[in-house]
Every structure is written in C-alpha cells, then in structure tokens.
Design a protein around this nucleic acid. Structure first.
Lengths: 274, 274
DNA sequence: GAGTGGTCTAGACCACAGA
DNA sequence: CTGTGGTCTAGACCACTCG
C-alpha cells in the first residue's frame, strides 16, 4: 500500500517520528534489531533513502545504534541516568563507597539498579604528558610526563549478565593528578582502598575543600564515539571536574565524557544568606 | 580542479571539515553568508548533495544557521558563553543586580561584554495552567490556572546595535510561581525592583535557602527552534531550576532553554568535611 | 522571476557482518 | 556468499527570499 498522495514535506521526519513512537511504546524493544531499511520503507509506504535518513536522525538522538553490515538496533538504555554532581561529595556517602571511589558508586549505582542494571568498571593507571588545558589547571609542565592518569571506562550491564558481558558503555572518566603528588604512592595502584582517591589525597595532606565543574556539550571525537558506540553526530557532555585544597591548589582534574542522551545532570546547593 | 581520486569515504565529512576550518580561521566571518551550495561544490571539487549534507551537519553543531531561500550563514556567536549556576546566588552579587534579577545580570552580562555584546531582554508576565512536571514540583493544581508565569526571552546584541536590533536569541527563561504566593503582588509586574524576584519573595516570607538544578540535553521543540533560530537537529540544554525555602516548600521553578552549542555551564561548591 | 536551500527519487557501489 | 547499512550521484520539484 503506497502513500504517494501527501505533498511529502519532510517525509523523513514522518518516518523518524514513526520510529520514535515504536521505540517509546515498546513495539521495538531495547536491544532489538529494527527491520531492514527496504522492509521498513515498504511497511511505512516510503523509500529506502527516507528511512535511512530517518534512522540517522533518531540514532543521533540516542534512541538507536547502527552497526554497519548488521543492522539498526534500539539502544539498550533509552531512559536517562541521573548524575548527581553535588550530592556525592558528602563525607557520609564517601565512607560507604567502594574502592573505586565516589564517582563510581553511591547514587549512580542506585540509579542503575532501578533499571535492573549493574555498573562495571575497567580502570587503568599510567603516567602521561597532560593535555594543555589540564596542565594549565593543575599548574604542571604541558610538555613533560607530569601527571598520573587514572582512566575508568564505565559500563552498565544487565543484572543477570555473565561476568564476561560488560554491557553498555556509559562513561569515560579520566583523572589527572600531578606526578609530584601521586608519583610512587598508592594513587598509582588500581585499587586505592576505602574512600578512594579523595581520602588518600586527604591523608597525604591534600584535603579537597572546593569543587568546580564545567559542562560543555559537543560532538564526540572518533575515539569517544568508538568506545561509547555513538554516531559521530551524537552529542556528549564533557564535564571538567576540578578539586582544590584550602591553599587554592588544584590537586585533581577529572574529565568525564557522557553520551548526552543517556544522562541527566543534577546539582544542588545552599544559598549564602550572610 | 576536481579531486575524484580518493575512494571518497564520507565525502560530506571532508566538506564539513573544510567548512568548520573556514569558520574557525575567519575565512567565513560571523554573520557572513556562505557561497551557494553549487558554487561551494565546484570550489571544493564536490557536488551539491555532499555540500548540502555537510552544511546540515555543521549547522546541527551550531556553527551555521540556514535560512531557506536565502542562504547559509555563519552563526553570529561561535564561542561559548559561560553560565555560572552557583556563583550568581551570593547576596553581594544580588544586591548589585538590576530589576530583572540575578539571572539576567552579573556574570552573564560581563561574559557578553567580553565578546562586545550586550544583553537584551523581553519579559512578559501572565497567569497560566502549569505544565505537569512544574505543577508536581510546586505542589499546585495541574488542571487550573495556579501559577504566575514570568517569561523572559533573552538576546545578545552587538554593543553598537540600534535599539531596534535585538540581536541573537540566546535563551528562553520561564519562571513559575504559585498563584497563592505571587497573585496580586509586585511579582506580577514586569519590573520587580532591585534584587529581583528573589528579594521580593524573601520580603514576603519566602526566603530561598536551597537551589536545585537538573540539566537535560535534547532536541528543541519546533517553537524553541523557531525562537532560537535553531535547526530541528540542533540540541538545547533544558535546565530545571528549583528554589526551596527553609520549610522545604518549592516557591519558584524556572525552566531555562539554552542552545547547547552556545553555552558552557559552570558549578562550584564547597565540600562538607563535617 | 531568479536564485536559494530543502527535499525526494532511483539507482549504484562499497565495506562490513555473519552464516 | 548474501544481506545490511553507508555513501555517492544526478536530476527533479518545491517553498521560500529578495530584488
């Protein structure tokens, strides 16, 4: 049954909306493969080009992921995960956190459990030449190996997934600490112990008293797109997180890369009335 | 001089990068019209379809704006404006703020001035039935006219622009206040006086002591796209800002809609070490 | 009315996935 | 090897802007 009648203004948007609707109402379920483009074109009374373009649009919004040669799939996570920026920095919460520190746990984990998912982590540690903006914040040499880099790739896996299944990549968190602070300490170990980095830094005399976060929305780099299985025209939130000591020294910078469609960011604070 | 040699994987991406480069290096200046698609195709050794698609991609990133029948233009603002979420809520700053309150002034204005721009404002006030999520936060009836709505459309104009030229739309801010608080008060006037809404609310016994903001990145609605002159596949940040009193009553919700490519968000706070 | 971007069509080739 | 998405091509029509 063709449908050539309407003046066809923005046919691909009509198809895109049909796809969104089917994802939202569960006709297409998370993880499921969509019908091939020609089939869907037939079904919707359209043509392959329009369907391809529609899929591109919806994929850029984060609802679909395409894999060349294989098909278009509904994203496994189609609702937002909340990242509570401020709430995580309370001592009570920090003490109950696991080895990988505050960021990986607490609210984030609870958030995922509500979706029947569990967090997985792939940490790594190395020494490196810092990116220029990070070097500037930390006040270290941008041309030398002057920072310890703690890299965490974070996933969300179905609660019943086998240990080998990492699940969906949801975040890249890269922490930079000046080499003269972290070099040769437990901060170069994968496991930093109870309370994580923040507690260790405090024990070394670098107690954090103030946090700043800057948020920028942009397209992912090819590497980010690859790891997060995003299209190049998706969007990521880049959060540059900086921790200062009472002496106003920046002791830690963490850059978080989050698929923008996957997350909701939350901050809260008291007003100074003095 | 054609360039048909390379296997042409993602020709439109090559063209898109060429356009980005020319915007970044000033070959195409802010506000300037780009060459027509066929001309640009010739110049870059490409074809109209590839150029159109490339323009679409770069426009979705916020660097270009297209006007059907007229042309593609470099966006007037191609660098980020910073919105400091937390810094604006200090009493010192509030007292020096103008009539439209904290949000419209302070850091935002300073930020713009550095780009040789000045803020312009189009406020309006009315009573309305609140959107469901707002009604839930404020605890008011979602089916009745139960809130006062203060709407501000914000622009950035060149410093030397005539008064008639509003400049580039940069933000929509919609504030909702329960009718039983704001009804019949100065909060229904366009000008709320020195210190703005926050000070007036405090004087009425609704002192704000805690702020929460939730940030979501999404595609704009057609109406938002229209006002902000965005394409439908751009992105906006939707910031839902809530203010609570000491009695834990939400007295004000403001929804900010910002073109994501135009803004950088910033938050900072002290860590509780108690 | 001429020029512009927006869209659609139809067909073609490629790279990749997976049986 | 077949089917898939990704892309390119070339031409066509439309809606809109602007002189």
């Amino acid at each position: 049954m063709k449908k050539p009648d309407p003046p066809a203004s923005a046919e691909f948007r009509r198809v895109a909306q049909a796809i969104r609707d089917r994802v939202r109402d569960g006709t297409y379920k998370p993880g499921q493969r969509l019908p091939a483009a020609p089939a869907m074109a037939e079904e919707l009374g359209s043509n392959r080009s329009a369907v391809e373009r529609a899929v591109r649009v919806v994929a850029a919004e984060g609802l679909l992921t395409t894999r060349q040669g294989s098909g278009a799939y509904v994203s496994r996570i189609i609702h937002s995960i909340t990242r509570d920026g401020t709430g995580r920095y309370r001592k009570a919460r920090r003490e109950e956190a696991g080895p990988e520190g505050v960021q990986a746990r607490g609210a984030f984990e609870a958030e995922l459990r509500r979706m029947n998912l569990v967090p997985r982590n792939h940490p790594s540690v190395r020494r490196e030449v810092p990116p220029p903006q990070v070097a500037e914040i930390l006040g270290v040499d941008p041309n030398q190996v002057s920072v310890v880099v703690r890299d965490r790739r974070m996933y969300a896996a179905p609660a019943d997934a086998p240990p080998g299944d990492l699940g969906t990549p949801v975040q890249i968190a890269t922490t930079y600490i000046p080499l003269d602070i972290a070099g040769g300490t437990v901060l170069e170990d994968l496991d930093t112990g109870a309370g994580g980095m923040i507690s260790r830094l405090a024990e070394m005399g670098h107690t954090q008293v103030r946090i700043g976060e800057k948020i920028k929305v942009r397209t992912p780099t090819p590497e980010e797109a690859e790891f997060l299985s995003l299209d190049l025209d998706n969007r990521v939130c880049q959060i540059t997180h900086t921790a200062w000591t009472a002496e106003d020294r920046a002791v830690e910078v963490t850059v978080h890369i989050l698929p923008a469609s996957l997350w909701e960011l939350s901050y809260s604070w008291d007003i100074e009335n003095g």
